[in-house]
Each structure stands twice: as C-alpha cells, then as structure tokens.
Nucleic acid binder design. Sequence first.
DNA 1: CTCTTTTGTTAAAATTTTGTTAAATTTTTG
DNA 2: CAAAAATTTAACAAAATTTTAACAAAAGAG
Lengths: 224, 224
Amino acid sequence: MKKILIVEDDKDIANLISEALTSQGFKTYLVNSLAQAYSFLIQSLVDLVVLDLILPDGDGIELLKYLRFSSKFSNIPVVIVSARGAELDRVLGLELGADDYVVKPFSLRELVIRIKKILKNKDFPLSQVRVGPLLLDKEKKTIFLEDNPLNLTPTEYKILEVFMENPEKVFSRDELSNHIWALEREYYSRVLDAYICRLRDKLGEYGELIETVRGFGYRLKKPA
Amino acid sequence: MKKILIVEDDKDIANLISEALTSQGFKTYLVNSLAQAYSFLIQSLVDLVVLDLILPDGDGIELLKYLRFSSKFSNIPVVIVSARGAELDRVLGLELGADDYVVKPFSLRELVIRIKKILKNKDFPLSQVRVGPLLLDKEKKTIFLEDNPLNLTPTEYKILEVFMENPEKVFSRDELSNHIWALEREYYSRVLDAYICRLRDKLGEYGELIETVRGFGYRLKKPA
DNA sequence: CTCTTTTGTTAAAATTTTGTTAAATTTTTG
DNA sequence: CAAAAATTTAACAAAATTTTAACAAAAGAG
C-alpha cells in the first residue's frame, strides 16, 4: 500500500485530502508543520508528499528543496497544494522539482487523479528493458546479452539493472552505492570499481558500454 | 530531437507555444483542426501532443479518446491546454488519460516545464542549458558543441559549466577559482589561465566565445 | 617606440583517479 | 558443519588529469 504524507496546517483541508486518498486505498499520514514533516520523513519512508506552502513554521518550499537535494529522498514525488497561485510560485515550485502544483481551491477528485498518475509513472512495472544488446528481464531476474543469459552475481545484477533503467545517466559512485546497498558508507571503498571491472569482463566485447566518466562516476552507454 | 504536435486553432497562441518549445530544443508541428491532427498523426509519430479542446471541427476530447484507445498511439503523452477550466472538464480530461491539464491563460514557461517533466519520465534529459552553439547536459555530464560531445576533463567541464550558467558575466580569476576549487589559494597560480587556453583549444573555431577581459578575468560570450 | 604588465602557450613533473588482480573475509548453500 | 559462492579489501599498475614553470606574445602606459 502506498504511503502518502500530507503536510498541511489546516485541519479541515488535511482531513478532506486524507479521506479522499484513504478511500482510494492509500495510507495517509498527517503533519501540520515543517518540523513535524522533517522528523516524520527521517524515520519513515513515504511514497509521495502532499505539501502545502504556507505553514506555521515556514515556507513549504524549504521542505521541497531539502528533499530534492537529499540523496536519500530526492526521488520522492512532491505535489504542492497551495493558495498561492501566482505564476512565479508555480514556476518556482515546478522548477525545484515538484511533480505537480495544484492551486486551491481544487477538487479532491482532481488531486487524487493527479497523484495516481504520478505514482503510476514511478513504478512503471515494465518487466523488460532493452538497452543496445542487453535485455533486462525482471521477472526472470536475468539479463541477456544478445539472447544469452549473463551469469551475474546478485550485486552485479543490481548494478547493471540500475544502469539499464537509467541508460546514459551518469552515476557518481555514491549515488550508485546508495542504489545498490541502500546505506551510506562512511569510509572510502573501492568495491564498486571492482564490480565495474568484473561486469565489463562479463560483457566481453561490449564491456565498453559501461563508460567511466572521469571525476564523476560511470554510466551505461546506449548505442545509436 | 523530441517532436511535439500542437493542435490549436488560434494562430497566435499556437505560434507562441511553438516558439517557446522550439527555443528549448523541441521540434514542433502545428495543425489547427481535429481532421488535420488525425492525418498528421497517422503519417508521423510524435513524442507528445499539446491539445486545445475547442476546435473548429469538434471537441479535442475526441482526439484524446482516439489516441488512448488506439494501440499504436496509446502511450503518446497528451497535454490539454484549454480555456475550459471547469472542474468537470479537468477531471474528464485527466481521467481519459491526459498527462496534464493546463487552463488558459497560462504561462509559457510553466507549460514548457510541465511538458519537460512529462517527457523526462520517458527519459528526456531535463537539465539542459544552451548558450550559442554550446549545450550543457548535466544529467549526462556532457557539454555538446554543435551536437558533438566535447571531450573535457572534470575541471574543464566545471569551468565551462560555471560559464554557461552565467553567460556574459565577467568572472575574476579568484571568483572563478572559488567556484571551481572551493578553496582560496594563498599563493598566486596560473592554473586557470592554462585551463582557459585548453578550453579555447577544444572549442576550436568557437574558442573566442571565451573572452579575456584584460585586468579582470574572463567571460563567456553569448552570440546574438 | 620602449618598457612593463598581463595573458597565451606548452611540455614535463607531480598528483590523482581508475583498472586489475589475488587473496582475505563474509555469506550462502548443500 | 563444510564447501562453494560472493563480497570486500588491499596493493600495485596504468592512465588521465592537474599543476608548475618557463618562455612567447600581446596590450597598455608613458
């Protein structure tokens, strides 16, 4: 069940939103200030945040910024719900990475539709992804290279999976590590480099599909 | 390059949208009726449709339905742009599978952001900056010169990035150094000059885009 | 024009980053 | 529990980048 955090200081509005979402099968959590939002997020991962901009202890935009610049939370979708409908606000919110911006008064039904749409895009359960000669089959937990299954260890598989879901994107070692191990290492480790080396090996003549971007990290090239 | 079909009978609005999108690197096609839209879509696949609802030969919703129920076109994103802002219309549009619904009058900037956001879900690089013949793609950590990727070292990349984010601005060597190395050097170094030299080299005929402001520092010219 | 200062240019030294591999350690499996 | 597999470490090699430093060229002042 998808978890949604509602950050809204107006009790009535918060309850309305909450009911609308609950009736659609979401689990909701209500907080009414920035401070509460921060502490809630730290201890519990949610799937989406509904964010009011005008809060008793500050501007909701701050929370949006915080989420976007955090490596851990940067991909939690945020829907802004605000009485501030000025173009400047909308543009600012969207540019900072809000996934949608709904101006009050809005219809609950519309809000729910928009939220569903966003979450649907998120976990597009497309079970097969193709990148050049590689084919990722999530059902089978197998990656094929020109129709031959690669013999990968679990971690090797995860790394290549992340790459294939984001072809062309450059991952820093940290970013990649966070995806693979879900925890930050406090010390400097070269495990990842070792894996990249072995992956290239297993990709044989296609080894150079994994490109090192010196000073930044690695990426999976998508052949033209 | 992403192709966008604009279905809009008001010439002025159509042109405005078209310009805004073109300036951001999209290729646009304009049609002013449902009939034209159908025939265009059949012969040419586009990446997204901007759809006005009120058209001379019918309701844009019909086109949306057609696209959604067609197996071939069902995953082309549709953004509705309409003067009909009533909740009923919005909900109907979104429920039929429109990816966004923008009510007139709207800001072009907002429309462009929303469109980019939708296409990004389909793996479109959102973070792009264009200055003259240069294109900075942060996602790919690559700078293109007339569509050819430049082969830059990390520091060269950073310098050009700072320039591209502040075209025309004159940077003193100190200021630039602080941006690049984040620390002040206590002794006088000419590293930066060496980098500028190599950057100009790599920019080839466009080398003089990086201009020396004698006695002050450097800047990146933005051609008219 | 001549001198002085600033900037351009370049090769080589110094440093940093990445590749590679084997062995040590940990985890999983039978 | 033992064997196998997988992960991690650590060390050295290779490659690329950064920095220095020296000289050349250009610009400005008088």
